[in-house]
């Protein structure tokens, strides 16, 4: 078996100074890769921060929604209350106005006439005098 002997690799050639060039090329490629890694790390950090913010927004979203709903509810309740108080005050005002007799519109009754003609002082005086007389 003449060919099965510890062989040499002289049948394979390679360019001159290949290993020196290889080292230099590899160094260049490593430099480029390291730079790329640094820049991608920066980008990754920004992305991670954005992701964290998004995550916190997502986890807190129900709470935020509930808070917003609560504020909206309070606002609408206060608005309704304001409106209703306005309505009642205006209706009260209206009713008060309607109850107060105005000089122009109301017709004086007999009672009114008596009260107006006697007056508060006159009645007390009347009673006091009548007590003394007794």
């Amino acid at each position: 078996m003449p060919f099965i002997e510890p062989g040499d690799r002289t049948v394979f050639k390679m360019p001159e100074n290949y290993f020196k060039d290889f080292e230099a090329n590899l160094e260049k490629r490593l430099d480029a890769l390291e730079k790329e890694k640094v820049s991608s790390n920066g980008l990754l950090q920004v992305q991670t921060k954005a992701k964290k913010f998004k995550f916190s927004m997502e986890t807190h979203r129900p709470i935020l929604y509930m808070a917003a709903m609560f504020v909206l509810l309070l606002f609408s309740i206060s608005l309704i209350l304001n409106l209703s108080s306005d309505k009642t005050s205006s209706s009260l005002r209206l009713s008060a106005e309607s109850q107060t007799p105005s000089a122009t519109t109301s017709v004086p009754t007999a009672e009114d006439y008596l009260i107006n003609s006697i007056g508060a002082y006159g009645i007390t005086e009347y009673y006091v005098e009548s007590e003394y007389l007794k």
């Binding site: 049948v11 394979f12 050639k13 360019p15």
Partner: peptide
């Protein structure tokens, strides 16, 4: 171009 073997080397 980086292989300089003869026919026998190629067959191997």
């Amino acid at each position: 171009p980086w292989f300089s073997g003869d026919e026998v080397a190629l067959k191997l």
